[in-house]
Nucleic acid binder design. Structure first.
Lengths: 225, 225
DNA sequence: ATTCATAATTATGGATGCAGTATTATTGCA
DNA sequence: TGCAATAATACTGCATCCATAATTATGAAT
């Protein structure tokens, strides 16, 4: 009747994984800025741990593409070039498009209600121009679709790609009008899902992602001017 | 005029990376069999290194999906279920299809000659029924296409997926007739590339991968009987 | 004053040691 | 003889330590 006493320690993620997660947060927030050097000693001291689990965490982040390990020269936060973005986004569009397509095929009415509920949040936050909450709900919408599509491997690739894309997170959603446009695109995707048109859902999701890339490009051009 | 004296040490991969590569080889060869426990001490001793770099290597392999790390319980070689394969292959087909499509768009005549040369090897090894060399040439063909397509991110995802698929390498190519069939599919792909029909090239590559999955499925059913 | 060489400092990568936990073996009891 | 409880063993995960290489600072020479 107890809650598995052993599970307490089993459920506790390894220290290196906890550290990896903390570092991800700091990288996404640009607290650790792209291109900046990661001071192992300082971080280990700050977290009150030794360098060993920290270094293991950095290995994980490196394989996720969030940092790059330069042998004998330390670890640096990844800087994405425009070319990198032009490579990642089309792939992301391909993968997310597939998810939408597959989700449309398997969609139950319960699933749809769930998506509808999240979409309503999107409408709300778009109305109040709350980019942060919009972003959050947006992510949950996409995650829900992934779950419905039911391909864990595909999901994992998307999650990884999303991490990479989040490196650029001075949020294209903050571009004037982008939030409204994103919402409109979501409406169209939801519409295709309701109609059960998997091809169309896939196509619209695909284009939605590319549209996100364009918004980001505009933002970068603007910030350069 | 010198050849950069520093590059000697820079070129040397980190120890953990060397170890990771050695482990990959042993995993693919089933020297370390799926599901088997990885004895850190024994391996470290065998390689004449400490457990530290070995453990770092295992972190990398874990993020590649070749092993799974069970907290406090050690590291095990990944076992792929049929469901896993049914998830990975369609994604692989999607990605490789995209590569073929993109490569077809960018293909120069020099590129085509290169592909043709590799394909000729395939014909050779198919004729002599040399599965190992066929496999090798096959991999080079796909790699060449990836290079031509010119999307490094896409390439990386495919490379990762290929590693996962290689876990099952009791080679579907060894299935009777599969080698011939694979060759025929390659001919068709090359044909589409020559004609510059990117859509067709993508489609055929996509189907080629799914065909590979089917061959593997037959093999597994057969081995169960 | 600038540049190059050399010395001092600092950081990385790897080895070793140790505490805590899981696993296995052993012993006692039903 | 089988099962449970407990003791012994073994392994994982983290910390600490050390050697080597890279970076920076210092000083000399042009």
């Amino acid at each position: 009747m107890n809650a598995r006493p052993a599970s307490a320690s089993l459920n506790a993620p390894a220290l290196y994984e906890q550290v990896a997660e903390r570092l991800r947060t700091r990288i996404f927030s640009h607290d650790l800025a792209p291109g900046s050097w990661i001071d192992e000693q300082a971080l280990a001291q700050e977290y009150g741990i030794s360098r060993t689990p920290l270094r293991e965490a950095l290995k994980v982040l490196a394989s996720e593409g969030l940092v790059i390990l330069k042998p004998r020269r330390g670890c640096y936060v990844t800087e994405l070039s425009e070319q990198d973005l032009d490579e990642v986004f089309p792939v992301m569009a391909l993968l997310e498009g597939r998810v939408a397509e597959e989700a449309a095929r398997r969609l139950t009415s319960a699933d749809f209600s769930r998506l509808q509920a999240i979409h309503d949040e999107l409408e709300q936050h778009a109305a109040t121009n709350d980019a942060d909450r919009f972003f959050d709900a947006n992510q949950r919408f996409h995650s829900a679709l992934q779950e419905i599509a039911g391909n864990r491997y595909l999901s994992q690739l998307i999650d990884d790609a999303r991490k990479v894309i989040k490196l650029t997170r001075r949020d294209s959603l903050r571009l004037d009008g982008r939030l409204r446009q994103s919402l409109a695109e979501h409406r169209d995707i939801l519409d295709a899902l309701r109609r059960g048109d998997s091809g169309l859902a896939g196509q619209r999701m695909h284009d939605h992602l590319l549209s996100g890339r364009e918004a980001l490009a505009k933002l970068h051009v603007a910030s350069r001017a």
